[in-house]
Amino acid sequence: MTDPNQKQSDDHWLVRPTTIRNIWIAGICVLLLTLLAGFFIPTKGYFGIDDWPGFGAVFGFLCCLLMVLFAKALGFVLKRDEDYYGADDRD
C-alpha cells in the first residue's frame, strides 16, 4: 500500500550525513555523561564485585557482545532457508 504521490524523500533530515554525525556525537556525549555520573553518585553494589563506577556500562557492553557472538555462532548451526518447513505462502 505504498502511496505513489509521496516523493521518495531520501533527503529526510534524519538520514543526512551531518545529522547522523551529530547523533553519534550526542550519543557518545550521553554515554560519557552516564559514566561521569557514576563517579558523583556512589554506585550501590550488592555482591562486592559490582560496586565500582562504570560497572553497569562494562557489564552491559560485555554481555551484549557475548550474546551477539553466541547468537551468531548458533546461527551457523540453526539457520535454515525460509522454505525449510515447506513452501512459504507469504507474498
Binding site: G27, I41, G60, C64, L65, L69, K79, Y85
Partner: peptide, 29 residues
Amino acid sequence: VFYLQLLLFSGLAFFILLPLMQRTLTISL
C-alpha cells in the same frame, strides 16, 4: 545511573555490532 549505563552501553554495543546482525532471509530451528 546503573540502568542508564547498562542500557545505553548495550545500545552502543548494538550499533558497533550491527555488521554482525545483518538480517538474512532465514528461519532458525
